[in-house]
Computed example of a mutant assay.
Amino acid sequence: MTKTINPILKQVLELGPTLAFFLIYLRIKDDTYTFAGTDYSGFIVAALVFVPILLVAMTILWVLTGKLSRMQVFTAFMVIFFGGLTAYFNDERFFKMKTTIVYGAMAGLLGIGLLRGQSYLQFVMEEFLPMQRAGWMIFTKRLAFIFVVLAIANEIIWRTQSTETWVKLETFAFPAVLFLFLWVQIIGLQKYLIEDPQQSKD
């Protein structure tokens, strides 16, 4: 059963772990930690600490709301998987590649739907944003495109810039770009919005 919680608390639980990772990284970025005879950089330690913080936040969110989105579950899996690879190989590149794969996977899924003449985005968001099918197809194409752009941008940034620059852009720039993009699209697609949700299936 889905429950309603304070929207501010919901945002804290959804965005808090990423902000916590950023703050922890800034605090220990220049330090080196030794575990079982292996030296780990501050970035890798921050990435590993991020995993339980994310899981705790998601557990609280699930308890309070009674559900988790597919995207939240997928992101958590990717964080755990690539966090594990990062620790096992003691290589921060795995954690940085996670962002590319998440954005790439989202673009791929939306693209598969488009090739089949469907909008998977409509399937996920229709309850919250009733819109005509034509609007959903346009929205889906554009969102798939921005996911591809962000995936490529992440690859370029982590391969050419410092870890600190990547962390800052990952924490603030990428989410801001995506939020601004979604806001612009919703405003631009106003003519496709409908009052009767049943019409969005036509």
Rank of each mutant, 00 (worst) to 15 (best):
I156D: 09
E155F: 06
M97P: 00
G135W: 02
T100I: 13
L115P: 02
E127G: 11
W62H: 14
W158M: 01
T140H: 04
V79A: 09
A57N: 06
P130C: 05
E155T: 14
K98F: 00
G113M: 10
M125W: 10
Y103T: 03
V51F: 03
L68E: 01
M131Q: 01
V51G: 08
V124T: 11
F145V: 08
I112D: 10
F81P: 00
M106S: 10
S41F: 04
S162H: 14
Y40Q: 11
L150F: 09
T100L: 07
A47E: 01
R116W: 13
G42M: 01
T160S: 15
L169G: 04
M78R: 03
L109V: 15
G104V: 11
R142W: 04
I146S: 04
L129C: 10
Q122M: 12
F145Y: 09
R133T: 10
V149H: 05
V56L: 09
F82M: 10
F145P: 06
L54Q: 12
K96F: 14
W136K: 01
L48M: 15
I157G: 04
M58I: 09
M71V: 15
L68C: 06
R116L: 15
L55Q: 12
A57W: 04
I146L: 14
I101A: 02
L115A: 07
L48P: 03
W62N: 14
T163C: 08
L143S: 15
F95P: 00
T99S: 12
T100M: 11
S69G: 13
A144V: 07
M71K: 10
M137W: 04
F77V: 13
W62E: 13
V51W: 00
A76D: 07
T38M: 15
I152P: 07
L64A: 06
W166N: 00
A134I: 07
T163S: 05
F172K: 03
R70H: 12
V149A: 11
A36Q: 11
Y40F: 12
I53R: 05
I112E: 08
